[in-house]
Design a protein around this nucleic acid. Structure first.
Lengths: 233, 233
DNA sequence: CGAGCCCTTGATGCATTTCAACGAATGTGG
DNA sequence: CCACATTCGTTGAAATGCATCAAGGGCTCG
């Protein structure tokens, strides 16, 4: 039950939840000390659930490395994927006492696991930290609104193109070749289309020479500018 | 520049932003006094903009009565409607110094207009109030996630049915007959479909005897249960 | 009464789903 | 190490949903 808060990877993840100058915030030392003694770093295998929908939400998680997929299953057996998370997103903090979605690891991942009561307590005592988190929530909200717009107004292939551009930015960090950590089905369930349409989308973008597909999961964006234009209608 | 905070309508709106037992919160009296002296109640005519995208976001607004539509226009001239608000939603509070969307009144409306700096200041001084607001933000976030799911997985006519059920709940407050305050085009832009598809959706639901259409804007949900089943696939 | 706006309806074509078959990659047991 | 099963992705053909183009109907307001 101890966490090495001096690790760069952990600092990076915290910074992306609470801002880059997080260390300067009033209360941040206190918070870090509590994390050091009461939080833990866990590792999660590929394809395993960190938690499932409707379970008691006693913990929140911050991914350090790996890929986490958030999903919800529907009455009729279909599934909605609503996010792929890489590093530094706080998962599972809400007012509900149970999770409203499942979190599944798509790769070997490491995460910081924190008692929900610890976080809530820190937020009570240190409004500055709470404020930072809520600014971050606002960014998430705006991101989802953009996604909502995309779902309503873009064609299936455009949505796929936008998805790949987003992944390139978040995974490739600038390089245009990256490893896709999720299956075609996962992408389909995220973009609200059938598996086949996703597959055809890949083929179509390849034929247009906008991307190249080295293997099923290794993608290169050949022409970011044209690909962006393609998403613009 | 004074606001009558004893009005029931204003209390109701505040309660829906900050919780029903808002008055018991630490700092709420202070907040109310500031509102009384520094906020104002404004009225807005039908079909006029309260603010537009990219304007300086100096004020936040809480609708008291009427209907507000939040929209964003796109590069290619199309439009995305992302919310219809009735009463008690805090509009326009974000970290950006300009609005990222426009707010348009669809009816004669009254709203409380508050200086953004006042609100931010209250939140700094009274973490309990800020916390309430952020709980409310979380509810909004969940609502949008549901909408995202609907956009991805439901057919056009199902989306319309879900929209009407939502409106009935929010406008009719239990009664099944209600006045739709927005045009077919507004609904289309909200649900990501064409005006014609929206219209056909109305006709189709009418023919299925799930709703009746007294006039273009007066709708009755004849069979809520079957209508709900219809949205379930 | 006519103009203008909003809504509805029809016809057509394109986008996407669905059903079905095939191919490629991966793992398992003989 | 190879045959086989299994999983995942691709491709084709048919059917469906939806957008688009086009025309007509009803309402409101001057």
């Amino acid at each position: 039950m101890t966490l090495d808060t001096s690790k760069v990877s952990i600092k990076t993840s915290l910074a992306s939840c609470f801002g880059t100058n997080f260390q300067d915030l009033k209360g941040s030392q206190d918070f870090l000390e509590e994390l050091a003694s009461l939080a833990q770093e866990i590792t999660v295998d590929e394809n395993t659930y960190i938690f499932k929908e409707d379970e008691q939400s006693n913990f929140v998680y911050i991914p350090i490395s790996g890929v986490i997929m958030l999903e919800r299953s529907t009455a009729r057996g279909s599934r909605h994927v609503f996010a792929f998370l890489f590093t530094g997103n706080l998962i599972g903090l809400s007012e509900f006492s149970f999770y409203t979605f499942s979190a599944k690891s798509l790769s070997n991942s490491t995460m910081v696991k924190i008692n929900k009561s610890l976080i809530k307590n820190v937020f009570e005592r240190h409004p500055q930290i709470a404020k930072r988190f809520h600014e971050y929530t606002n960014i998430v909200l705006n991101y989802i609104l953009d996604q909502l717009f995309i779902m309503g107004q873009k064609t299936a292939h455009q949505r796929l193109a936008l998805f790949l551009l987003d992944m390139a930015k978040r995974i490739g960090h600038g390089t245009q070749k990256f490893f896709l950590p999720m299956s075609r089905q996962d992408i389909a369930d995220y973009l609200g289309m059938s598996l086949e349409t996703t597959s055809r989308g890949f083929t179509s973008l390849k034929n247009k020479e906008l991307i190249s597909i080295e293997s099923n999961y290794s993608i290169t964006i050949l022409d970011p500018k044209s690909l962006t234009e393609y998403t613009d209608n």
